[in-house]
Amino acid sequence: MSHHLVELKRLGHVYPDGTAALSEVSLRITHGECVAVIGANGAGKSTLLLHLNGCLVASSGEVRVGDFPLTRATLPQIRRTVGMVFQDPDDQLFMPTVLDDVAFGPLNLGLPPAEAEERSRDALALVGAWHLRDKPPYLLSGGEKKRVAIATVLAMSPDILVLDEPTSGLDPFARRQLMALLKDFRHTRIIASHDLDLVMDLCERTVVLHDGRVAADGETRELFRDDALLAQCRLEKPFSMQGCPVCGVVRRIA
């Protein structure tokens, strides 16, 4: 089970232009956990996620996935273990049709075409998008694109799912659908989001990033009760923890 483990040891990243996006980030995420990474714009969420499957290389510190440190030699194995769903599904869907796209990963893993297709079918069925299989990506709606993007990753049967802003740009219904889907997964999940209600619903644990450092790491409900912390990190309580605006107004009128 240890291959579901993600560990960051004093991770630091400096972009070529000199911006220090991450410094001294240490985390340990264990099997089956669902962890949210939250923070203001530019706090380093996306940079952190891109380290988890070697899209970016650490300037200092170490990334370990399972029993392996992330190095050039272990990269293929780690990319199989960590499935990454990018923020903009248009970046992720590059093949002529949905089915071609979902089969892209399994075929790269060397599976025979028939089996790759079977896996793709299962993944598409799981996200409820099998009926879209022959469509080109540009004819999909935002919610459909997101679900297909998740299927492309699921088809590779990863142990760890990393999602960058999974609900951004979705209508309320598509958002609910996606959240229900994510809730059912048994993978280790790491989700970066500004959707704090999603975080409340899905993640038991939350990591708060501020200016590239870990400002807090703990139980989600506890963190959202800490007003001082939230204010310092330019965050707010999720709506579900704020008073009802309608009732509040009614009471004042009465």
Partner: peptide, 18 residues
């Protein structure tokens, strides 16, 4: 970003056809 997404899905320079 597309290149990253491809690498993340085990792309190693070959396009396989179904």
């Amino acid at each position: 970003r597309i290149h990253m997404a491809m690498l993340a899905r085990a792309y190693r320079g070959d396009f396989h056809s179904r």
